[in-house]
């Protein structure tokens, strides 16, 4: 247990000390503030969407479809192909812990990063609401928190897919390029065939909306949750299988 925790902290610190991750975090905080300010400024001219109570959810929609996936690609590239390329993966494996611990720690660090981004975004966008004078009531805030938690689940599934994909790459830039193309393809595919949408975790990035509605049946939510959970587990396991057989 101790070595697991040490490995996890080590991976987190490694992520934290990379400048681009820090820049990513800062951007995540600045973008909602800038958007809120510009909406507020444009409002008298355009009658544009006001910074309303649903602002945190509008932002969540943008973040889960583009911003957080980008973070996943970047962090996964740093955690796996980058370490292979710079031959530092050996160092992690030389420590007295199993490959599962190393793999688990890396994935957990990625999940922590996603959670941190979501928490940051939630706090900042709620703060924007506070300044715009449209603070949500308790029920709305509870709904927002629920939506953010649901988003975390879908982002985990997406992260698992890309952690698995990362095992095939030996250079981080190659992985980045491939992931972006793959993700874009996964987003476009439902327009060509509707069957794809049912099996692609990329089409679940906005599933948090289901949690906001009163009319969606519990069965639907359970099915979708099971899909995302099994998708996470499947790709996590497949990724581990690849990771274990990797020659370093």
């Amino acid at each position: 247990m101790h070595s697991w925790k040490a490995g996890y902290m080590g991976e987190l610190l490694l992520l934290w000390y990379r400048r681009k991750i820090a820049v990513f975090g800062i951007f995540s905080v600045v973008v909602p503030i800038l958007l809120a300010a510009s909406f507020h400024a444009l409002q008298p001219i355009l009658g544009f969407m006001a910074v309303s109570q649903s602002f945190p959810l509008t932002m969540l929609g943008i973040y889960t479809s583009v911003w957080i996936p980008l973070f996943i690609f970047m962090a996964a590239a740093d955690l796996f192909p980058q370490e292979v390329a710079s031959r530092t993966l050996k160092l992690a494996l030389l420590r007295p812990n199993s490959r599962f611990q190393v793999y688990g720690a890396k994935t957990a660090a990625l999940a922590t990063g996603i959670a941190a981004l979501l928490v940051l975004l939630g706090i900042v966008s709620l703060a924007c609401n506070l300044f715009a004078g449209t603070l949500a009531g308790f029920a709305e805030t509870a709904a927002i928190v629920k939506a953010y938690i649901a988003s975390f689940v879908s982002m985990l599934a997406l992260a698992a897919v890309f952690v698995f994909t990362a095992q095939f790459f030996k250079s981080s830039s190659g992985f980045m390029a491939f992931s972006i193309v793959l993700y874009a393809a996964a987003k476009i595919a439902p327009f060509l065939s509707s069957a794809v949408a049912a099996f692609s975790p990329a089409s679940y990035t906005d599933w948090y909306k289901l949690w906001l509605s009163q009319t969606v049946s519990a069965g639907k939510l359970t099915t979708a949750f099971l899909f995302l959970a099994s998708c996470s587990l499947l790709f996590f396991s497949l990724g581990y299988y690849k990771f274990v057989r990797k020659e370093v």
């Binding site: 049912a198 099915t223 899909f227 099994s230 587990l233 499947l234 396991s237 581990y240 299988y241």
Partner: peptide, 20 residues
């Protein structure tokens, strides 16, 4: 590992089909 992959893929396909 094998059972994790097996079970999760079965669940994934089943829920995917029910969604479709």
């Amino acid at each position: 590992l094998g059972s994790a992959i097996g079970i999760s893929s079965v669940v994934m396909v089943a829920t995917g089909i029910s969604a479709m």
